[in-house]
Design a protein around this nucleic acid. Structure first.
Lengths: 344, 344
DNA sequence: CCCAATCACTAGTACGTACTAGTGGTTCTA
DNA sequence: TAGAACCACTAGTACGTACTAGTGATTGGG
């Protein structure tokens, strides 16, 4: 009579309770195609599941089928931006609605931890940056074939539009009459590739408009780079600065104000991501809003398509748009809120 | 000769390659206690592992042993604060160094997704807020006994010190001579419990100093609450405001500036978390720094203790400290950077 | 009315691991 | 020199699921 410390409820228990074979339970629960089950039996099984509070054992399922209902998202170890977070939420939600769990995972460079993909038998692995050759080899060795982005299946990239954001930033400043632009980038070396992409776009816009290339400066709130960068830009005749993101934009503004300049009076600044900080700052920061929610949904559908051949929805071109705020507005009521501080 | 689509390398393959039995491979790889293996055999097995690039199959291991090297951290669905992120990183790292993977997971309220704990066979489940009775029942039904915080093992709480932060905030303002305080809270209902805890602490400090209770106002950058709250506080004679965190502090400052007040001239503001925003803002925001890294490490050791009986290190009392910046500094050089805008 | 096809199931196995019970062989003790 | 103790291993099984092959019963066509 004494059970071994309350065993787990298994499909066999359910089968006994419902008076059927374990196989039937499996058929009912998995809606196995090509197997017909009478309505009455199905109901009896489901009732037994309910009564015994049966939960399938993930490990056993993964072992048997070699699959799991897990999508693994590999995040880079660079700082999580606000926009990414929104993206993540949409992704989690859409996958969740389809019975998949999203696990995010940031590989630690110097950790001895086993990478999660070796551990989880994930149905799909998504990388926010392309995988290294090593990682790809390991994934293949583990039999994971659903990989995004996949070098063997071009077009399976996590279709992020990396260009329209910076283009909008630059065009915004040009349309306001600025003729010499600055570009403010964060010091984090892990962001270098992205910084380069965005700078290239801005440079291209400038050249095409017959202007000189943007004046690039690194800005960070932790060192004294803000004020000197601002002074440098103004000395070079720059009047509008494209910032890598809203955080950097804030650092630029802080630098300008602290070196006695006014924003937007002496320097206009555009951010990127439209994070809460952009609304929150004084002056409020003009920024590019990217529809991260539909981007997240798109990634989810891509993953589901790979995992189960769900149909792909017509890709809704993710729209980037510019939110115009004080940091690029010359003459408004709010302009008077902040004033250049008196020199000497 | 034709294999079934390149089968996975198993322990049996390793055994064959090394010329031993599968059991021996297991003994070598798991360093099974109470089992002696000759140095020669051990080396042969390890060499075979290397040659075949063998990776143990997690699902099979989890199935057989009922355990996994996974610690599941259940995050609330309220906004991730900056300090939490630091905490997470330390936690991930410490666990990783011990061969455990940390998976974070935010249950989606209206999603049909299976909770990850039902799926992963985690060694430990940590909740940043206490689990509901329902969740606890489910965890128990799944045979997961390592739960933090655990109502059945008091003292197994994720030992967060929720009180010293707000106490420092209030005492800082009092020490600067403020005699009537305001308290600024965020509107998010999911934070209500934390808001209450912090407000209670601030109130207690005020009462004990012979002052009246703080004047509470909700502030959010998305509605117009900032300016009106600031005006209200000043009208009530409040000169120092304790903000729930740095984001809220920024909203308070923005509100004050936009209603024609000066910070810290008319109103001093203290934040909480010492996020980048606090240094970045103009004026820079005084804030409470909490040593989230050692907190994270402590949680990790708690989890390892539960999972494998690792010894607990002497708990390093997590120190909270106040970082003094412009937002509570009456007369400094920087004070002149921002000025009250002229009325009318 | 007979054979085929379909229905509604069941018996039984494989997935890859961890570990128990056992097995020869050697060394040590009395 | 018998027996105990130990060493270094192996055979084999259980974990819980998904699914293949098979099995009686019913239906359908000619």
């Amino acid at each position: 009579m004494t059970r071994t410390l309350t065993r787990r409820t298994t499909a066999a228990d359910v089968a006994r309770e419902a008076g059927v074979s374990p196989a039937t339970v499996g058929f009912v629960l998995n809606r196995t195609k090509g197997q017909t089950i009478s309505e009455e039996t199905r109901a009896r099984v489901l009732a037994a599941v309910e009564v015994l509070n049966y939960k399938p054992h993930h490990a056993a399922r993964a072992l048997r089928s070699g699959k799991s209902k897990i999508v693994l998202l590999v995040l880079p170890d660079w700082p999580l931006e606000h926009s990414l977070r929104t993206n993540l939420e949409a992704l989690t939600h859409t996958l969740g609605d389809n019975g998949y769990a999203l696990i995010t995972f940031t590989p630690q460079p110097h950790s001895s931890a086993t990478p999660l993909w070796a551990v989880l038998e994930p149905a799909v692995v998504i990388g926010y940056k392309p995988f290294s050759a090593e990682d790809l080899a390991e994934l293949k060795a583990l039999g994971i074939r659903n990989i995004i982005p996949n070098p063997e299946t071009p077009g399976m990239g996590a279709a992020a539009d990396l260009e329209s954001g910076p283009r909008l930033q630059a065009e915004h400043l040009l349309s306001l009459g600025h003729t010499k632009l600055g570009f403010a980038c964060p010091p984090d070396p892990r962001l270098a590739a992205f910084v380069k992409t965005r700078l290239d776009v801005v440079t291209r816009v400038c050249i095409r408009a017959g202007l000189s290339s943007p004046v690039v400066r690194q800005v960070d709130y932790r060192d004294g780079s803000g004020p000197s960068a601002a002074a440098h830009w103004v000395a070079e005749g720059v009047t509008g600065v494209v910032a890598y993101n809203d955080d950097v934009a804030a650092d630029v503004i802080a630098g300008a104000v602290r070196s006695g300049l006014s924003v937007p009076g002496d320097l206009c600044v555009v951010g990127h991501d439209n994070s809460p900080l952009a609304s929150r700052y004084i002056p409020s920061i003009s920024s590019v809003e990217i529809d991260m929610e539909s981007l997240g949904k798109q990634s989810a559908h891509l993953a589901l398509n790979l995992a189960e051949g769900y149909p792909m929805p017509a890709s809704p071109l993710s729209a980037a748009s510019l939110v115009h705020r004080e940091s690029t507005t010359h003459t408004t009521r709010n302009d008077s809120v902040l004033r250049k501080s008196p020199r000497s």
